[in-house]
Nucleic acid binder design. Sequence first.
DNA 1: CTGGTCACCTGTGCT
DNA 2: AAGCACAGGTGACCA
Lengths: 218, 218
Amino acid sequence: MLRKHTYADELRQGLRRGRGMGARAQPTPSWAREPLFEKAVTPSDVGKLNRLVVPKQHAEKHFPLKRTPERTTTTGNGVLLNFEDGEGKVWRFRYSYWNSSQSYVLTKGWSRFVREKGLAAGDSIIFSCSAYGQEKQLFIDCKKNTTVNSGKSASPLPVVETAKGEQVRVVRLFGVDIAGVKRGRAATAEQGPPELLKRQCVPLPHGQRSPALGAFVL
Amino acid sequence: MLRKHTYADELRQGLRRGRGMGARAQPTPSWAREPLFEKAVTPSDVGKLNRLVVPKQHAEKHFPLKRTPERTTTTGNGVLLNFEDGEGKVWRFRYSYWNSSQSYVLTKGWSRFVREKGLAAGDSIIFSCSAYGQEKQLFIDCKKNTTVNSGKSASPLPVVETAKGEQVRVVRLFGVDIAGVKRGRAATAEQGPPELLKRQCVPLPHGQRSPALGAFVL
DNA sequence: CTGGTCACCTGTGCT
DNA sequence: AAGCACAGGTGACCA
């Protein structure tokens, strides 16, 4: 019902980039970005939980949250963060803190990102922000896992929207599309490989910096 | 940090009984209690579901829940109930109604109870309350199942905390402690015996009474 | 109704 | 060894 954030922000965001979704402005070059941290996503991060756990240390360092000390409302302390991907597309995620599990999470909007990027357990996401400039911008990028068990039975395939809005899964072998499977309901089976992925999170070099937040919020 | 339920409640509860966890006050004698009902726990009750289904009839008779018809908050209709066990230890459970399953359940805190009591499928739990007194107190007690398949392979043993906070499993034969096994990780195997336990719930005699709730909440 | 979102919860492994 | 971070869950709610 009372959606707090309407298209006002969308417009503000879109206009700053010159164009909306259609014609893409040139993506921000990597040399203009400052890496923050990287995380290898877990099965839960890309599964039906529809959330990404942001490692606490990096969350508190780079994405500090107003810790409303006195319980103003029970609605929580969530904010909306905008991230730009490698193609210049902007993703908005809800970012909040879960008291019960004492962890920071990206929730709303995350599942769409997972689906459209074809993100699978073991892949990595890399957070960065603009190195220079007054209005700091956040970035998110994917790095597909290239180690052995990439060809597991139920490994999620990238999902691409066709012109008609159809969603198909894409299988490429040496760059050639192999299968174009129509997408039904989300796969119920989870728990991919037995997992030999333990150390998922890596702090990146290129200058440790203080909170990257501020202008990004909302 | 900002734990909503701090030690305030704990203290309030503890002080009323004269002593906290350490030196135990004398347990409330059974003659001062009024039995409410008994349930033989199911595999689900002691399994990884982390909840106890309270038979609806007894739930509604003894533990009525304010059915907040108008959604005041999104926090739901749960309350926190304090139960005292045979040793005078107080257990706090979250008690709520699940619309999805149309059932009353004890959730938060229940798994700890199961673990520390070594509760197994087929065992019974007995609910009672103080027969006299202004501030009514709730009680919960276990009755181990003594029928045949008690010696199943992975039957959980009672877990007791030693003075140092160590946790050991207790095996008694004719009241004599047989084994004092240090407790490692929780056993992963679940779903105990194939179950021939159907009629699990028994209303107890000693005077059927109306709602036992009121002063217990929180 | 169904899927997405949200705020909870817990066991486990790592530190 | 004890605490904590978090992976993997839950039900409720809502659009």
